[in-house]
Design a protein around this nucleic acid. Sequence first.
DNA 1: GGAATGACGATAA
DNA 2: ATTATCGCCATTC
Length: 103
Amino acid sequence: MADEEFAELVLTVVEQIPEGRAMSYGAIAEYLGRGGPRQVGAVMSYYGGGVPWHRVVAANGRLVPGHEAEALQRHRAEGTPLRGDKVDLRKAAWWPEPEAASE
DNA sequence: GGAATGACGATAA
DNA sequence: ATTATCGCCATTC
């Protein structure tokens, strides 16, 4: 059984992702300062059912493996900066408290 | 403790 | 741009 605490943190961060934005596994792991992209992905695979998992993408903008079509439809519906079948992280890249640290 | 695996990431070819 | 390989971190056998 994995750390529910870590899982809870991951789910919390994912819930914080606004529409039209996306965050990569590595970014979440880095933000939490623990584990790595694999642990984030592992948590998502199990607990991802209660959060906008489609807003979580790979570092290269690739959509969630196993749910590409599902995520793609949601991104289209939300207006996420898509680039073909991938998310345009150039614009969609997001981070918790983005304006609070700058603006 | 060592080897294998996994919703990953980066680099090389 | 795509495929292959190595590296990362934690879990499981």
